[in-house]
């Protein structure tokens, strides 16, 4: 009798790899072949994980059609099975997988559409975070503001793509006009994804605002982020940008980066 750990490893190989021999040897035949019994378990694993991926990636599924998605999902699940039990956390690297997946490599925009859908999913389920306490900001003298660093809500993401992934996304919503087309040669997208009223939404940002917020998200201080924004647009309005950042309620904490006092957490 193999040890429990060996039985479980054999089961994993049978369910994911298709090699039934070791697991089958541990199973009684009574009236039905062990491989037929294992197939029932395999079917459930693949059906539920494919359904979870479809729920996270409905636009990718529509873009490639459902039969192809099922095939790609099957290959993905075998290559990169989940490691954690929360299904809303499964599938974060599907974009990378699709980018290297031969049968759809010609759809160059597909991985970035997948990144957008993953960002929407991650924002929807991100941990709830407290809002910025205004006293934290007021405690910092104004002359020190160039050294300010910001901590962002976990339900806040930035994403850019050379493809018009926002227009592709809208054109593949169930309510979209089926005859609408997207010009793939149009400008790319610089997007921000966050929660509004609890729902994940995205919107397009101008290049300077995107560069400004990107630098801050990456931990740069206000001065460095402003430099990035001016590179994108010499007419960048810093005061307006800081005001709208705070009004959007996506910042959870502030601190002085120059003193090594990074926001906690």
């Amino acid at each position: 009798m193999p040890a429990l750990r060996e039985v479980q490893a054999a089961f994993r190989d049978a369910l994911l790899g298709g090699d039934d021999s070791l697991a089958a040897a541990a199973i009684a035949s009574d009236g039905m072949r062990p491989d037929a019994r294992l197939r029932i378990y395999r079917h459930h694993v693949f059906a539920t994980l494919t359904a979870a991926l479809k729920a996270t990636y409905p636009v990718v599924c529509r873009l490639v059609d459902e039969r192809f998605f099922d095939y790609a999902a099957d290959c993905y699940i075998r290559a990169r099975p989940p490691s954690v039990p929360c299904l809303f956390e499964y599938g974060g690297d599907l974009s990378e997988f699709l980018g290297a997946f031969g049968p759809c490599r010609h759809l160059a925009y597909l991985p970035d559409v997948a990144r957008l859908e993953w960002a929407l999913n991650a924002v929807a389920h991100a941990e709830d975070a407290p809002r910025l306490d205004p006293a934290r900001l007021h405690a910092i003298p104004q002359q020190a503001y160039p050294g300010l660093a910001f901590r962002f809500d976990p339900a806040f993401r930035l994403l850019s793509s050379p493809w018009p992934i926002d227009r592709i996304w809208w054109a593949h919503q169930p309510s979209a006009d089926p005859d609408s087309t997207v010009d793939l040669g149009a400008a790319g997208a610089a997007l921000e994804i966050r929660r509004v009223g609890g729902d994940p939404v995205f919107r397009s940002l101008d290049a300077a605002t995107h560069a400004f917020r990107r630098a801050l998200v990456e931990g740069c201080c206000l001065e460095a982020a402003t430099t990035d924004a001016f590179v994108a647009d010499p007419g960048f309005d810093l005061t307006g940008a800081v005001r709208s950042l705070l009004a959007d309620r996506v910042v959870t904490d502030v601190a002085l980066a120059t003193l090594g006092d990074h926001p906690e957490g």
């Binding site: 479980q8 994993r12 994980l49 989940p82």
Partner: peptide, 20 residues
């Protein structure tokens, strides 16, 4: 059981009923 070798199989899988 559902997990082995760092993989979560998303199913309530059967155990042999032994002392171990």
């Amino acid at each position: 059981w559902s997990s082995t070798g760092g993989v979560y199989l998303n199913h309530l899988l059967p155990l042999p009923y032994t002392e171990e």
